[in-house]
Amino acid sequence: MYDKTDLRSALAPAAAAKPAASRLFDAEYGLFYKESPAEDDANGRTWYTRGQNFIIAYSEAKPGAVFERTGQVDEFMLLIPYADTPAELSASDQRETMPGYALAIIPPGDSRIVLPEGGTIVRIFTTRSDDLVARCANAAGYAEQHTNIPPLVDWPAPVGGFRIRVYSLDVAPQPGRFGRIWRSTNMMVNIPSAQTGPRDATKVSPHHHDDFEQCSLALEGQWAHHMRWPWSVDMNDWRDDVHAEVDSPSVTVIPAQVIHTSTWHSAGRNQLVDIFSPPRADFSKQPGWVLNADEYPAP
């Protein structure tokens, strides 16, 4: 359900909600602003939170920090949300200088990220990276496969093969295009424009996703994630609505089938990033919405 001014109202009408899964699941949270980091070392501080298919690694890096992956099983993304955080990237024989305020897709295999000036970075992996799964503070929430989410299946390989690809976030809004969306073979990131001041409570967007989670990464501002669980045939499994109030930085993982919408409340800047794994087919079908669709074919 979207307000008529919300561009997502252009999506194909959602089918009626599927019957609630035989087992419902809780939302998951990574409250980085108050939780202890999983790593606190020469590179800085890093927190890890996961969903069924994805891992968010949020780092406050020190100058000279180096983040390496050896034998990485699949692509991952690097989000640098601020302009004062340049990075030096390498993978195989490719070298790239990445400015701040940009997104990179890093290929499988060996790679290296160097942050000469430190700063805030977000790396987004799939849960195929077993070593990182073990570092997630909420690992117990996924001790078993969530039954309403199918196994992760990659989309087609990129045109020209796997390599480092860097995209500036400095993309001007365009009429008819929702947010700033990029996809890889295994995930999709949507970075809407930052909002100043609280959200208009008369124009919210309650909706649900039948078979995938939504990861909402709050980078700036105060947020409330409003969630309503469907009823199953077992009243013992019914749940009260949740209105989760979180500060930044934080991650909220919204379960499949749960009706949800988010509101922002700070008088200043409010910035949220939404992450999905695998990429969303409905967003991908909208002409012009996925900014690198010419490089990453849809199935």
Results as ranks from 00 to 15, higher is better:
213 E>L: 05
207 H>F: 00
196 T>H: 08
263 T>P: 03
180 R>D: 01
199 R>F: 03
165 R>D: 12
241 D>I: 10
216 S>C: 05
225 H>W: 03
170 D>F: 06
244 A>N: 10
183 R>A: 08
161 G>N: 07
213 E>H: 12
217 L>Y: 11
227 M>E: 14
237 D>C: 00
173 P>Q: 12
210 D>R: 12
159 V>C: 10
251 V>D: 03
213 E>M: 10
214 Q>W: 02
235 M>Q: 10
243 H>E: 10
203 K>E: 06
257 Q>Y: 04
190 N>P: 00
179 G>M: 06
222 Q>P: 00
178 F>D: 11
249 P>E: 04
212 F>K: 13
232 S>N: 12
165 R>T: 08
224 A>D: 06
198 P>E: 09
166 V>E: 02
260 H>W: 01
239 R>H: 12
166 V>T: 11
178 F>G: 00
251 V>H: 04
186 N>R: 13
259 I>M: 14
204 V>K: 06
157 A>I: 05
158 P>E: 03
251 V>K: 01
223 W>I: 01
170 D>S: 14
210 D>W: 06
196 T>K: 12
250 S>K: 04
216 S>E: 09
182 W>K: 04
205 S>I: 00
169 L>T: 11
245 E>L: 05
184 S>M: 01
194 A>S: 15
202 T>L: 10
256 A>H: 08
207 H>G: 04
166 V>N: 08
243 H>T: 08
227 M>W: 10
180 R>A: 06
226 H>V: 12
246 V>D: 02
240 D>C: 08
165 R>V: 11
222 Q>K: 13
180 R>N: 12
164 I>W: 03
198 P>R: 09
164 I>R: 07
160 G>R: 06
178 F>A: 02
253 V>P: 03
230 P>N: 13
226 H>T: 14
